[in-house]
Amino acid sequence: MRIPILRLDRILLVSIQEDLTDDEAMQFQSDLVNRVAEVEALGVAVDITALDVVDSYMARVINDTASMVRLLGAEVVICGIQPFVAMTLIEMGRDLIGADCAFNLEQGLEMLRARIVHRGDTRFTGDEDD
C-alpha cells in the first residue's frame, strides 16, 4: 500500500489511514522525502489521526522523516496524535516524538503557514506583489 501525498500549492498533505508495516513506513519515508524535493515544498503536514499504534519504530520513522524534510528546507507538522497514543509514547520513554505537533490538520496548516511567513518566505503566502 502506498500512502497518497496530496499537493496544495507548495504544501504537501499526507494522511496515514492504515496501520503500517515497517516496510510500508520506510516506503512512506522515501516517497515523502522525494516528493518534497521534487516540488520544493515549503511545508508538510502529516496527519496520523487514524494511527492507533505508534511504537518506538514508527516514532523513529516519523522523527527521521521530519528531520530529512527539514534538511531539504521545508517545515513539518505532525497532526492528530490520539490521546492514548500520546500517553503510550510518553510512558514508553521521553522524546520519542521530537517533531512539532498540532491537534488536527487545520491547526497544522495554520502552524505551517505561520512558520513559512516567519522565515520570510512569500512564495506560499502569495504576497509577492507587495
Binding site: 492507533d52 499504534v53 518506538s56 519504530y57 492514548f84 500517553m87 503510550t88 514508553m92
Partner: peptide, 17 residues
C-alpha cells in the same frame, strides 16, 4: 479501555519486532 488496548498493542509491537 482504549488506553489499555493501545498500551498492550504497542508492547506486542515492540516485543515482536
Amino acid at each position: 479501555g482504549k488506553a489499555h488496548q493501545t498500551r498492550l498493542a504497542t508492547a506486542v509491537s515492540e516485543l515482536t519486532r
